[in-house]
Computed example of a mutant assay.
Amino acid sequence: MQDYQKRLALSLLAYAVQKNINVEQLCERSGVDIKTLRSETSTDFSTQQFSALWLVATELSRDPFFGLHFGESLQLTALGVVGELLRHSRTIGEALTHAAGFGHLVTDMMTMEMERAEQSFTLRFIPDHDRQIAYPELFRQVMDFFMAFALHEVDGLILRKMNPSVVKMAHGQTKLYEYQRVLRCPIIQRSDTYSMEFASDYWDEPILTADYELQRVLLRKVSTLNDAFANTQVLSERINRYLLANAYMGVPTLDAIAANLNVSSRSLQRKLQEEGVTYQQLTDSMRKSLALHYLKSGNYPVKEVSYILGYNELSAFNRAFRRWTGTTPASYQKKYS
């Protein structure tokens, strides 16, 4: 995944040049060594640096839609072998299905999924709620980027431009016309979800650069990268993603998580200890992230949030929340109401 982040970061720097941003200043303020970033062998490039590049570039560009415009301009070649796989797919439906299946190799801010109906199909963008809460401004820019890129990535690959019939997003209430222009859609609906819906006839639209033999080779290569990514994921991150994805089911026990990962409870504890974290800390972090999200949304009373997070008593939730934030859930919710 680091290789893809580096590739995307270099593309971001190239776009910054087009926006007349001083790249040396951008890298210095972001804590990024440009020589290290351009090195083929170095992996010394962190998620924190990647995040800093985005935010500083947005600031220096003075463009509140930096991510949206970056996504509009980026070419498929910036995604390396994943981009090549999309370019040599047979149809739009096949290309977008591959994009959804391997999108996590490019970003850890969200995942994608396809949903096909009789008259339409929908590309959904599913946020990593933990990162959404921790980096709200970065999250907005990255979501703008991927929604624009997912649409514009097929420009030139088919004999017409794709136009969504409906776009749903959780932000973008200001200067709506810019989202309508870039996303080629007059209907932008405010929603808790992110998605683009297309008429079904786009699904079988043939891609001009399709190469079936090469596609099979690329698919094997990307699948190998995907397997390597899954095997090298930090255990605590895998557990955290599982907890967030299944939060509606409550907080599972350590034994239940161990069984899900096909390891013993003792082995799981040992591996987490090697990563410098405990299972209790992971569940505590997940509860905190979701508590902040639910309370800030204003859609749930404090007592219901306490129940959702698995607290048997409201007083226990109040104590935990005060330990996390220094204030009470009611005071926090009132601040955002």
Rank of each mutant, 00 (worst) to 15 (best):
V154W: 00
G156E: 02
G156S: 05
L157P: 07
L157I: 08
I158E: 09
I158V: 15
R160P: 03
M162Y: 06
M162Q: 03
N163R: 12
N163E: 10
S165I: 04
V166W: 07
V167F: 05
K168E: 15
A170M: 10
A170G: 15
G172F: 11
G172W: 02
Q173W: 12
Q173D: 15
T174K: 10
K175Q: 12
Y177C: 07
E178K: 14
R181Q: 09
R184F: 02
P186Q: 07
P186I: 03
I187G: 00
I188A: 00
Q189N: 06
R190T: 12
R190W: 14
S191K: 00
D192M: 04
D192A: 11
T193L: 04
T193R: 09
T193D: 11
S195R: 08
M196H: 02
M196I: 01
E197T: 13
E197L: 03
E197F: 02
F198K: 01
F198S: 02
A199I: 14
A199M: 11
S200Q: 09
D201L: 08
Y202S: 07
W203K: 01
W203N: 03
W203T: 04
D204F: 02
D204C: 05
E205V: 14
L208I: 11
T209I: 06
A210E: 06
D211T: 04
D211C: 09
D211P: 02
Y212C: 01
L214W: 04
L214T: 09
L214C: 13
Q215A: 05
R216D: 15
V217M: 09
L218E: 02
L219P: 00
R220H: 09
R220N: 11
K221P: 01
K221H: 07
K221S: 08
V222I: 04
S223H: 01
L225R: 03
N226T: 03
N226D: 07
D227H: 04
A228Y: 08
F229I: 03
F229G: 01
F229E: 11
A230H: 13
A230V: 07
A230K: 02
